[in-house]
Nucleic acid binder design. Structure first.
Lengths: 215, 215
DNA sequence: GCATGATCTAAACACTCGTTTCAAACATGC
DNA sequence: GCATGTTTGAAACGAGTGTTTAGATCATGC
């Protein structure tokens, strides 16, 4: 009989922590739906009953795993605060860093987990938006701001979404995008090509906006 | 004992056709994974065994349903060939029509089915890309062409993807995008706002590209 | 030592899924 | 009418899912 359901002490470092890591990585790889409790537990070296015991249910485990993943998400260098150089170089660096995080396949499972949560709305989505997406969008808006000095916050946000969407598309619609481009996978060469295009396409629009007369 | 597995005659108009329609609409609403055989059959007023009998398996039913949906996909007016007016108006109309198809909620289940297939690569994806996506991307490239007279096919394709991605994002990442915009649903007002922004963002970039000196 | 509570294990449970079975109903040609 | 082949119906099958159970094991305080 269990009186205190979860110990909830962070310095557990035992089965509970292993389950969080296994769940976060498995969900990042396969999605919440296809990540089975049995696979997560096998990965964590735990019994299937451990999920119920430590977290109550698979849904609760996901929320905790996403929270755990957010807490140890490494801050991107462009995001913590790059030195104030040329605005164009600054925007280029921001887009490139975003693209590497989203399209790069260097086992950035935190980013993959973030992208997984975007499609399927559930309890973990709020955590992802608040702790991972919102800050990065805000930082991207700062990189945009010099080009749109007279624009309101709404326009800056829509512009940030336009930039992010061009990169996210190649993740969420990868099979279609690859066929449209006649490619087989997102190798370094293709990612570089996409980044170069998005930078060109975006910077042209923003520079033109800066040169336009006030509305 | 069945000697001829499926009748395959189009003028059946019986259980087989009802299953195709029910499968296409259910998959468009819930996705292939969440669209159960039992729900499809209940919607078609058929027995669960009818899927195995008429199509062999759920996967085969999906391929046939997607093919069936493509065959009766209504051609968008901008796509069949608009009169050669101002290139800017032409591009605006193309983006607006695309956005209405992707974001509009006027029971365009064919478009939803198309978007569903983009995420989960399966046997039906090839049909969707070949019969629905490729022609529309090609038409969009034609609307782009006047702005990029010196660009190669690759650049035009990447630009078309940039445009489509800005709209598709609001579908595949709707929960996140709505939170970022502080909205609750994609009503007509929000869709109009997004379309206006994408048109402005895109046209600025393309116009600037046309004014640049040859590379 | 030992009682107590927390944690783990193997097994089962209840449920849903796609698919199959087999007989009944139906249509069709003679 | 009747034989033949096609289509449908209710029920079950087997595999998979998340969850629960009951007992074993471990850790800890007295």
């Amino acid at each position: 009989m269990r009186s205190t359901p979860p110990p909830s002490t962070p310095e557990d470092a035992g089965t509970r922590e292993r389950l969080l890591e296994a769940a976060a990585k498995t969900i990042a790889e396969r999605g919440f739906r296809d990540a089975t409790v049995r696979e997560i537990c096998a990965r964590a070296g735990a019994n299937v009953a451990a999920v119920s015991y430590h977290f109550g249910s698979k849904d609760d485990l996901e929320v905790e795993a996403v929270r755990w993943a957010c807490s140890r998400m490494p801050d991107a260098p462009w995001f913590t605060g790059p030195p104030a150089t040329d605005p164009l170089d600054n925007l280029r660096a921001a887009i490139r860093a975003l693209a590497v995080g989203i399209l790069g396949r260097h086992e950035q499972w935190q980013t993959q987990l973030m992208l997984r949560a975007m499609g399927e709305p559930n309890a973990a989505l709020d955590v992802v938006v608040r702790e991972m997406i919102e800050p990065r969008v805000a930082a991207l808006e700062q990189a945009i701001a010099p080009f749109l000095p007279d624009a309101d916050a709404r326009t800056r946000r829509l512009t940030a979404i336009s930039i992010v969407s061009q990169l996210v598309y190649h993740r969420v619609a990868a099979p279609v995008a690859l066929r449209l481009l006649g490619e087989r996978e997102y190798g370094d060469r293709l990612v570089d090509e996409i980044v170069a295009h998005v930078v060109r396409f975006t910077c042209r629009s923003l520079e033109a906006a800066g040169k336009e007369p006030r509305p």
